[in-house]
């Protein structure tokens, strides 16, 4: 479903070359719920930006639904983001002064779809927020905002849902609810990729890809939550070791 091969991305920071991604290959199958984990500076944000088509790798290929999108033009990438990728951000990133429903409609308008309102209502229903559709983000709680953001990500029925620290701005109880929602969505067939630094969040996923210094690595041994997963990871994803 998602196949990225030998991704390389470097930045020059203060005269020093930083290898944000150093020959990283990832495969995510349809229907999986996978975590990308790593400490800050490990390159997980860069990987997420490339997988989310916000950025292009320097070398390497990225196949999304069988198409190599690593060489797409900016406009083509915008279309890929619009139709095949749904983003969920740590700080929700909803547009203020627009109702929940209008926020969810937005990607459909960019897609030029005329059934935007109807589809947006369905998506809001999926995340359990039908009764809040006319509230503006400022009138919603953090958990509700994140639900609206998830509905917005879902509404175009994308190939993959990319969540960047989706529980980072929420209290632990609400965070659990959001993770439970992701699990439900995953159970209904959505492919989900969660980027997090939090082992507890990663533990909710079927497997994790651990990044360290721009390379895929084994999680550190003193990481209690990850420990339990290592064995399973090795079976599911041999190249991750």
């Amino acid at each position: 479903m998602i196949r990225a091969e030998n991704l390389v991305k470097t930045y020059v920071l203060g005269g020093q070359v930083v290898h944000a991604l150093d020959d990283v290959s990832v495969t995510i199958r349809e229907g999986e719920m996978v975590a990308i984990r790593g400490p800050s500076g490990s390159g997980k944000s860069t990987l997420m930006n490339i997988l989310g088509c916000l950025d292009r790798p320097e070398t390497g290929q990225y196949f999304l639904a069988g198409e190599d999108v690593s060489k797409f033009s900016k406009n083509a990438l915008a279309e890929v983001r619009n139709r095949r990728i749904g983003f969920v951000f740590q700080n929700f990133n909803l547009l203020p002064r627009m109702s929940a429903l209008e926020n969810v409609e937005l990607p459909l308008h960019y897609a030029g779809r005329h059934d935007a309102v109807k589809a947006a209502r369905v998506a809001l229903e999926t995340v359990g927020l039908s009764d809040r559709s006319h509230h503006e983000p400022a009138q919603l709680s953090g958990g509700q905002r994140q639900r609206v953001a998830i509905a917005r990500a879902l509404v175009t029925n994308p190939a993959i849902l990319l969540a960047d620290e989706p529980t980072g701005a929420l209290d632990s109880k609400t965070g659990e609810e959001i993770l439970a929602l992701f699990k439900t969505l995953n159970a209904n067939g959505h492919t989900i990729l969660v980027v997090t630094h939090d082992a507890h969040v990663a533990a909710h996923c079927q497997r994790e890809i651990y990044l360290h210094d721009g390379k895929i690595a084994a999680p550190p041994n003193d990481d209690p939550v990850a420990m339990s997963q290592i064995a399973a990871d090795k079976e599911l994803l041999p190249e991750a070791v």
Partner: peptide, 16 residues
């Protein structure tokens, strides 16, 4: 700027 970033992330083209 942030709003523009959000719009681009959910699929707005430069022309939009």
């Amino acid at each position: 700027t942030r709003e523009i970033g959000i719009r681009k992330a959910i699929g707005a083209r430069e022309f939009d």
